[in-house]
Write a protein that binds this DNA or RNA. Structure first.
Length: 299
DNA sequence: CTGAGAACCTGCCGGC
DNA sequence: TGCCGGCAGGTTCTCA
């Protein structure tokens, strides 16, 4: 799926094209796209017309459009997760329907519409209330959609607490990559950027979390921030047309990847052939020399 | 409670 | 050409 940088690219596009507009209509073309909206597709579509869209927000890989308008009291939001293949696209309302168009939203100004297109249907949209942000520093006033209150802050947010992350890792009994992908510990990091950050920090994916030092965790977080910030700067990573901004354009970061997808190609630091391991039903890429397997490995 | 694996989908690619 | 296994950037659920 789109990881943090790709989702942020989409958020920025929505901020530019959708913020401040009022919804005229919503249409659900595939009920699975709103399966997590408990009251069902009809309720989803019926409650959107008349709502005004605020400034889109994001935490990790989730993004949401705050809604104001007739029905909305303290706060509701249109929450979106792109899953593995979801896209949020804006464009001329008259254009042809995409093959995997799931939800269409039109606005009362008659301008660009908003479409949720999702080939594999792992992504979803839902309408939900907002609750106080459990990860915000005390006395802060942020709010987040209720269904994602368990999603940790991401490393590019002010609310992310490096020291708390280190302590949580020391308490865990698992491998560092599994922990990096655990969105309740740190959000926004997926399979690509986990591998890239571990390579930069010279840590093996199976390193037991309870053996990590403060310095190593600091290095890892710095690496994760660097790689995701760099990816964001060039529009994110995409190997194919599945990962695009709201205008359907791909990013260029795939050209900057150091290990992901580079099996048997030389490590850019030491020349050793990059290895690929199967793990968690997915691939992990690492350099056998820069990231030696720990004596005690955890999966 | 924690950790590990399966399930949920569609499409593409390489090998036979 | 067609079929089949393997693989794809994620999350949630279930079971131990």
């Amino acid at each position: 799926m789109p990881e943090l940088p790709e989702v942020e690219v989409v958020r920025r596009g929505l901020e530019r094209h959708v913020a401040g507009r009022t919804i005229k209509s919503a249409e659900v073309l595939h009920p699975r796209a709103v399966r997590r909206h408990a009251p069902g597709p009809d309720d989803f579509a019926a409650r959107l017309p008349g709502r005004a869209v605020g400034v889109p927000r994001r935490r990790g890989k989730y993004l949401w459009l705050p809604l104001t308008g007739p029905e909305s009291d303290p706060g509701e939001a249109l929450l979106a997760h792109l899953g593995m293949s979801g896209q949020l696209l804006v464009g001329d309302p008259g254009r042809a329907a995409e093959r995997h168009l799931r939800v269409r939203i039109e606005f009362d100004d008659g301008g660009y519409d908003l479409r949720f297109v999702d080939q594999r249907t792992f992504g979803h949209l839902m309408l939900t209330g907002l609750v106080p942000d459990p990860f915000a520093p005390a006395a802060a006033t942020g709010s987040v959609p209720e269904p994602i209150a368990h999603i940790a802050a991401d490393p590019l947010e002010d609310a992310f607490d490096d020291e708390a992350f280190y302590r949580a890792l020391r308490r865990r009994r698992t491998g560092i990559k599994r922990a990096l992908l655990d969105q309740s510990l740190i959000s926004g990091v997926g399979n690509i950027y986990a591998d890239e950050a571990l390579w930069r920090a010279r840590l093996h994916w199976a390193r037991p979390t309870e053996t990590l030092t403060r310095a190593e965790v600091r290095r890892l977080l710095e690496a994760a921030r660097e790689v995701m910030t760099a990816a964001l700067a060039v529009g994110g990573t995409s190997f194919d047309s599945l990962y695009v901004n709201v205008n359907g354009e791909s990013g260029y970061f795939d050209r900057s990847l150091e290990v992901y997808g580079r099996r048997d190609e030389p490590c850019r630091r030491c020349g050793s052939p990059i290895r690929r391991d199967a793990f968690m039903n997915r691939s992990s890429y690492s350099c056998p020399r820069c990231q030696p397997r720990p004596r005690r490995a955890r999966y």
